[in-house]
Amino acid sequence: MGGYVAVILTGLVMGTLGRLYLLRVDYRQYPSYPQGYMVHLALGFIAAFLGAVAVPALLAKEYTAVTFLALAAQQFREIRDMERESLRNIEKTELVPRGAAYIEDIAKAFESRNYLAMLTALVSSAVVEFSKKPVWGVLAGLLVIFLLSFFTKRKRLKDIAVVRPAKLFFQGSILCIENIQVMNVGHPDSRKIFLEQGLAVMIEPKDDNARATLANIGQRQAIAHDVAALLGVKRDVNEIDFTPLVRIDLKTGKVGLVIVPMEKDMETLLKAVKLVPVLESTRRKPLKSKAGREASD
């Protein structure tokens, strides 16, 4: 057993480091910082441990031990449920809700990151076992972490669309962003505040795939949520006029966002919109099909 200490330890450390690395990347959407951090670190540790003992267990001809990996996978699905549940519970308390698609995406990311911890531990412990040098295990672990975090990296809105400032005006009582009629704003005072403090941007999809993705309601709600989280929003429970709205231009598929932010700053608004993640569950690729390509020309 003594010979396996280095093997298991390397795997354990690398797996946990991998989880820690991605927790750091994830801070913006993290719902509850210190406690949630602890929970996910502990679960990442367990995942790493399971990954690390798999190779030594196989070599010791303990084949049943490997079935624990399957059991672990089952357990980690619970993480997705846990995150989804907690995000859905706090959804009612958000002035601008995340929306179901965003929640699903975050929950999925948390689940997949435990598999990353497990896989990293598995690979680095296997490398240590066969090369007999922990250094190689560490390097292999780092490689797996970077490769996987690179491939599971979300696209940002700036990758699929061009974001530019847009003009905001009223047509009678209807609030418009260029060609998009957003909504009817009845009260003259509210209209004045929109004109004085409101900001609008136009998000122009780069191709038909992007257009289909941006049309998704979940994606649009995610934009509204993220922008409101970063710039603040003039909205309260009984003051709903200034809810940020994301509406689509039916002719062109462009998407307009209107918000009355706490900080009226177009530059930061553009930056915030560009940083919004493209949700996995809303991504569409009509151009990958023959029908979609034909429809686009």
Partner: peptide, 12 residues
């Protein structure tokens, strides 16, 4: 609008 947490719309 404030009492009911609703929004005012203008039918013009």
């Amino acid at each position: 609008a404030r009492i009911l947490s609703g929004m005012v719309h203008d039918l013009e």
